Amino acid sequence: MAKRIDAVDLNVYYGSFLAVQDVNIRIEPRAVTAFIGPSGCGKTTFLRTINRMHEVLPGAYADGKILLDGDNIYDAGVDPVTIRAEVGMVFQRPNPFPTMSIRENVLAGYKLNGTRLSKSDADAILEKSLRGANLWNEVKDRLDKPGSGLSGGQQQRLCIARTVAVEPSVILMDEPCSALDPISTLAVEDLINQLKEDYTVVIVTHNMQQAARVADKTAFFNIQGTGQPGQLIEYADTKTIFQNPENEQTLNYISGRFG
């Protein structure tokens, strides 16, 4: 199910502004890759190009290629909606649909795509997804209660269950623990380690300790000055990035000299 991601000569624009410049990276399947770097360096912008989410902003576009197992998601005729089903996104703040029950939240992707499910199929997907998000035992007796009634950490795991329910190949996470307490953060990090058994997982984080805990590989992004584009500076095994980086900018960032 998991797919390899290749960015080839990727540039990302907001209108005439070049936000991210010349990214070339290979992200392996069934692994966790973390993007780190100071605010405004293009981490989230690049993340959003992987499922074409950046295009929802007027004037935003990309040139170059993003390949999923060799297929360019930016080829003419490729439907962005299809890509967003293949490449799921978990956002910074938990965002369960407030008027929907836990059950309806998990199955929302099927409803939005107009897919009709039998009750038995829906129940099977519901349980599998909630178990996959380590949430089933906590909510199995209140599936028809509002998803917004869960705790913050439970809401984030509900959003992850909603993402995995449609069986994507890739799961993108944009600072998924930044709004959570330490106990909830640990639960989500444990889940991330389990998800990589079946998915390609890419996470943006400002928490370098979190990157060190969960990521197999880490990419460091930086910006050379105000108004300059973000750039990929170094990409390697996480242990190498944090213990023996090749680039002085990487060393300065992880040692706290800036950022």
Rank of each mutant, 00 (worst) to 15 (best):
E127Y: 11
K128Q: 08
K128P: 00
K128C: 00
K128H: 04
K128G: 00
K128Y: 01
K128S: 10
K128L: 00
S129F: 07
S129M: 08
S129W: 09
L130Q: 02
L130D: 01
L130V: 01
L130C: 04
L130R: 02
R131C: 11
R131S: 11
R131K: 15
R131G: 03
G132E: 03
A133T: 00
A133I: 02
A133G: 08
A133R: 07
N134H: 11
N134C: 05
N134V: 02
L135C: 08
L135Q: 06
L135H: 02
L135M: 09
L135K: 07
L135N: 03
W136P: 01
N137S: 04
N137V: 02
N137C: 04
N137F: 09
N137Q: 08
N137K: 14
E138S: 13
E138P: 01
E138H: 13
E138C: 10
V139A: 13
V139D: 12
V139R: 10
V139L: 14
K140A: 12
K140V: 02
D141C: 03
R142E: 08
R142N: 12
R142I: 13
R142H: 14
R142C: 10
L143S: 07
L143Y: 11
L143C: 07
D144M: 15
K145E: 14
K145N: 09
K145A: 15
K145T: 06
K145W: 05
P146L: 10
P146V: 05
P146R: 10
S148L: 12
S148V: 10
S148T: 12
S148H: 11
G149L: 12
G149W: 10
L150K: 01
L150Y: 00
S151M: 01
G152T: 03
G152N: 03
G152F: 09
G153V: 02
G153L: 05
G153E: 00
G153I: 04
G153S: 07
Q154L: 13
Q154S: 08
Q154F: 12
Q154V: 14
Q155T: 08
Q155H: 07
Q156S: 04
Q156Y: 09
Q156K: 08
Q156F: 13
